[in-house]
């Protein structure tokens, strides 16, 4: 572990992230972006979700429904439990690259490729699924074997007992200084832990469950409550990841984007000196 380097003003340059964490972080981001956009392309071919083994076409749990209006322009609605809203222009009917209103579940700027092409979407999805899985396996294997994951992500007893305090600090956007800034705070740990060991592995499991070949051997669809349940969970977990990324990027911006980005690129992180009056 490289030694701390003192900077002016009592600040300290500390080595926070080893190379394997930094590399797998960015490979993970790249593969998740491709998986999300190609996944939305795949969704366009049947934008409806169900629970159980089969699709009950007349009673989806949630769906994007498009229909042709009297004026010849498509209209669309998003239907979900407790929700039935007009989404014309965004979901179900949107302008294509040439500015023409077209019936498609997801707008062209959110799908890979941009035009409707299920085969191509699946090609991108399954290639980057491998990159995502191998990269994730490298991260987990190195993290668990070096015990870094256990050390970094599992909250200490002390952290858990001061969770209320951490929450107040967080809401007031008071970020850790001094020795406390050398580790993740309890809220970060309680977010990263279920993302790393919950959402990301569930993406893989629910994805595998949808494969009829894999299902012949592992019966994952049955374990998860049916193939359509697996598909719905796959989408909900992906939505959870998007929500995580939004908050994660928001926190990076609030905590100091240059310092945070540098730490995930070079490994080096600047921590500010502890304040005298910190309780």
């Amino acid at each position: 572990m490289p030694l701390d380097k003192p900077l002016e003003g009592g600040r300290l340059l500390v080595f926070r992230h080893p190379a394997v964490v930094r590399i797998t972080h960015w490979v993970n981001l790249a593969s998740l972006v491709v998986l999300l956009l190609s996944g939305l392309q795949i969704l366009c071919s049947h934008p409806a979700f169900y629970w159980g083994e089969t699709a009950r076409f007349a009673e989806p749990f949630a769906a994007i429904v498009s229909e042709m209006g009297n004026d010849g322009e498509p209209r669309s609605r998003l239907i979900a439990p407790g929700l039935n809203i007009d989404t014309t222009g965004l979901l179900g009917a949107s302008k294509n690259a040439d500015g023409l209103m077209t019936s498609r579940a997801i707008p062209h700027w959110l799908t890979l490729p941009g035009e409707l092409d299920l085969g191509a979407g699946r090609r991108w999805h399954f290639f980057f699924a491998w990159l995502f899985v191998l990269n994730g396996a490298l991260y987990l294997a190195t993290g668990l074997l070096s015990r870094r994951l256990q050390r970094e992500l599992v909250p200490t007893r002390d952290q858990l007992s001061h969770i209320g305090h951490a929450l107040r600090d967080h809401l007031r956007l008071r970020f850790a200084r001094g020795e406390e800034a050398r580790r993740y705070n309890v809220l970060q740990k309680l977010t990263y832990l279920p993302v790393v060991f919950g959402l990301l592995p569930l993406m893989v499991l629910t994805g595998l469950a949808m494969s009829p070949a894999v299902d012949a051997r592992l019966h994952l669809a049955m374990v998860l409550g049916g193939r359509q349940t697996a598909r719905t969970l796959h989408f909900l977990c992906a939505s959870g990841l998007v929500a995580f990324v939004v908050v994660h990027v928001g926190m990076v911006v609030l905590a100091g984007p240059v310092n945070e980005l540098r730490s995930m690129i070079t490994g080096w992180f600047v921590i500010k000196p502890a304040e005298e009056d910190t309780p």
Partner: peptide
Amino acid sequence: ATLDGAESLNRRLHGLFVGRSALAR
């Protein structure tokens, strides 16, 4: 063509791990 490589990999792996005779549910 590169992206299609993943499909060949899946086919080979399924051949190895799913096997010839495993029955669909």
